[in-house]
Write a protein that binds this DNA or RNA. Structure first.
Lengths: 116, 116
DNA sequence: TTTAGCGGTTACCAGTTGGTAACCAGAATG
DNA sequence: CATTCTGGTTACCAACTGGTAACCGCTAAA
């Protein structure tokens, strides 16, 4: 029998940053929303048009959550009909490198799955 | 009323790399498993001990999925009792920058939530 | 023969997620 | 007055997720 190695890792015991971050970007549609907002600010119905298949309910839910997390800012223009613009906050902008890294791996995964 | 901007984004229409990658690392416990395996190869029961709270069922499910995705390699040593070692593949190793980026954002999120 | 350890598998079940469809307020338009 | 537009909210419901607990085959040791 192989020697049993002991757990001597230094970092992620309980509420690790990985889970912290993934709980924000992990939900359905969330990455898409962040992606589009990272390009430029967008209005509610623009996001709804940009992201094919998303429902108003989910879009509302995700934007509310992202706003609560400090990732997205909601700005209401008092026009008529009112228009609401969403943009990434500074913190939201810091998600970009992570998103980019994920996208980069995603490309490789697609390439491999496409080959097979 | 604000002018209605048209969707002219270039990249992520359907099965975008973001969703492709997050479908791999998004499930419960998965980031933890990848984290531990990125440090060094580990055996089943080591992972089970390392990750507090995970059940054998979930660990099995995750490892199978990761193996099917080409992220993890399963290696059986014909000892007695048999020992099974899991390690990241080359592709799995490429997940590390993404994981690191996510961890880095997670730290900032924890800092902000800790302040509030 | 019984027990223990490894690496799982299986049945069952509760909670969460996300989908659809209907509905809402306020203001402008016909 | 009815309709349209934006930006949602709500009720309802099916599917998926993940948890618990019991069980399995194999080998070695007591």
């Amino acid at each position: 029998m192989l020697p049993r190695r002991k757990n001597l890792v230094e970092e992620p015991p309980e509420r690790c940053p990985l889970n912290e971050c993934l709980s924000i970007i992990g939900g359905a549609w969330t990455p898409n929303i962040i992606w589009y907002l990272s390009e430029k600010p967008r209005r509610f119905s623009e996001l709804k048009d940009d992201i094919p298949g998303i429902s108003a309910k989910m879009l509302t839910a995700r934007l509310k959550r992202l706003e609560a997390d400090g990732v997205v800012e909601r700005r209401v223009e008092p026009t008529s009909p009112p228009s609401v613009e969403y943009r990434l906050t500074a913190l939201g902008g810091e998600l970009k490198p992570a998103i980019d890294a994920i996208v980069s791996v995603g490309h490789r995964l697609k390439a491999l799955n496409g080959e097979g």
